[in-house]
Amino acid sequence: MAEAAIAIAYPEPWNKGKALGYWLTYRLSGQILGGAINLGINVDRNEAGKVSYTVYLVFIALQASGPFVSLLLNRPSKVQRKDGRKVELEILKDPWFEIKETTREFFTKNFLLIVLWIGQAVFSEAVFFTYLALWFSVRARALGSFVSGIVAVTCGNLLGWYLDNSRFTLRKRARSAFAVIVVFQGACWIWVTVLVTRFRHTRPTYDWNSPGFGSAFAVFVLLTAAFQINYLFLYFFVTNLARNEPQVIRYAALLRGTESAWQAISYGITSVTVFAEVGAVYWNFALWGVAIYPAWLVLRHFGERKENFTTVVGSEERVSEAVAYVERHDEEIKG
């Protein structure tokens, strides 16, 4: 929750997409580094099975260093933003007040409508990594982690750049990005549904020298990229739902908590053989289909308030500043 709140609140309003892209790049750099280490250690293992224990020792050492590296992060009060505004990431009320407010935010119409969209996005991680584990050799799995991380980082940063592009209105950016993500995911789910239905009978173990490797491997890479851009888009969603700094923290907490709940379900059911092989793919495909319309009901309103300021303040940066000011003083204005 803390890292999500930082990623949303630190950048200026017109740099949020790029900043989210950078944050998720750092997040995926772990997968890329892990894939490279795994591939280097297991490059000669062209059969199914478990990876070398050395891989785990290296990963444990890297994770143990994380808390010490995080001490280098600037405090919110020391962040210098181009728009001159201070980053305000603090909770001023007592914990019980925050629990009640966060619970209330969860049961608002807008958040409940995107719960399924959050689910279909994060549910897929267990699905495509289980797919990789079931049907590929040790070194092919390592290659998959490495290559898919690079592709996902590229796609995520391109989406972040697009979401910040002031040549297009927020309304157009939100709707076009949503349409591309929906179509891209739909194509991937059709592709992988056909493959796993066939694999359940053929029982392959693909190595990079195997016939048909390209088709089976490519869909894993694309599903990873789809997860990355969908994950970034989730934060774009909650950024546009939050009206002030405390809500940024609450929505970040709700998003990460909802994400964890869905992932607990997905990793749990993929431990059952029939779900690992085909059932989880079918389920995620169906979840994608039913999540589109509720998410659209929320997204279609993005940009309405901001566009009303356009004729008054002109540029995208000034629009963002004006909207932020009004939203910070919303209660005073209503009074």
Rank of each mutant, 00 (worst) to 15 (best):
T169N: 13
L112W: 05
V196M: 01
W135P: 08
A226H: 05
A226R: 03
F217M: 09
A216S: 05
H329P: 15
G144F: 03
L158R: 15
V194A: 11
W288M: 12
W96S: 07
R75I: 05
F237G: 03
Q247A: 02
T239C: 04
A5L: 07
K86N: 02
F309G: 12
L72S: 11
V69A: 14
A7I: 00
A19R: 10
V319Y: 04
K78T: 05
R27H: 09
A177W: 14
S271K: 06
Y235L: 05
A61R: 06
S77C: 09
A261G: 12
I265Y: 10
L72E: 06
I190G: 10
G335F: 14
S65W: 07
D44Q: 08
V221G: 02
F68W: 07
V313R: 01
R300P: 00
W296C: 02
S29R: 04
V272C: 01
S52F: 14
T311P: 13
Y231N: 09
R250P: 12
A174H: 06
V278S: 03
F136E: 06
I41R: 08
T224D: 12
F213V: 08
H301N: 10
A2N: 13
D94S: 14
E105T: 15
W14H: 13
Y22W: 05
L299V: 10
N165I: 10
R200Y: 04
F227I: 05
Y56S: 07
T270R: 00
V281N: 02
L297I: 11
M1S: 04
T258G: 08
V298Q: 05
E316A: 14
S124D: 12
I249F: 06
E101P: 12
L72Q: 08
